[in-house]
């Protein structure tokens, strides 16, 4: 049953992710992204990582995709007609698709890991808040601090790339 659910959610995620890429309408693409994230949350639940599933739904599916939709509506983008494919580019695409297909086939054919004998499962770190928080604030304290700087840099970047230049301060 768990295996079936895992496969189901994985297939669902993949189909929705494909929908994000091929959809010409930006709103539809964002909705496909939402569904793909729900699929990933399902995968997390199947792996007993309830906390991660919850956070994913809350932050990404809830906040980030909503933000995407706002921006898409603000920009009012229309699906553009794509230029016709050149012959060479079509051949290149087919070749790339064949390469990816061959790679995936060989991976499915050869990547058999032995099934572990499953004992009583130890609690997954992503299962509950307390365990997760202990890990974040002890073992992984340094990466958490680094990510703090990453977020600060990202925020500064948004400001620097979009703010109005100050005539007195930023002049050459």
């Amino acid at each position: 049953m768990a295996q079936f659910l895992f496969n189901l959610f994985a297939a669902f995620t993949l189909v929705c992710a494909l929908g994000v890429v091929v959809n010409k309408n930006a709103v539809n693409a964002a909705m496909c992204l939402l569904l793909a994230l729900v699929g990933v949350a399902g995968l997390f639940v199947a792996l007993n990582a309830y906390l991660l599933a919850f956070l994913l739904l809350l932050v990404y599916a809830g906040a980030v995709v909503a933000l995407f939709l706002f921006i898409i509506m603000l920009l009012d983008t229309k699906g553009e007609q794509r230029p016709g494919l050149k012959h060479a580019s079509l051949v290149a695409r087919l070749f790339a698709a064949a390469l990816v297909g061959a790679g995936l086939l060989s991976f499915f054919a050869r990547s058999r890991l032995p099934e572990p004998a499953l004992g009583p499962a130890s609690a997954a770190v992503g299962a509950e808040l307390k365990l997760y928080a202990y890990q974040l604030f002890t073992t992984y304290l340094l990466p958490v601090q680094v990510i703090g700087f990453l977020l600060l840099a990202a925020m500064l970047g948004v400001i620097v790339i979009s703010k109005k230049l100050d005539a007195a301060e930023d002049a050459p």
């Binding site: 600060l152 840099a153 703010k163 301060e169 930023d170 050459p172």
Partner: peptide, 15 residues
């Protein structure tokens, strides 16, 4: 040579 914010540049380089 250009009109750009300067302090943020140094900040990013250091990070």
């Amino acid at each position: 040579k250009r009109a750009v914010p300067r302090v943020e540049f140094s900040h990013l380089v250091l990070v």
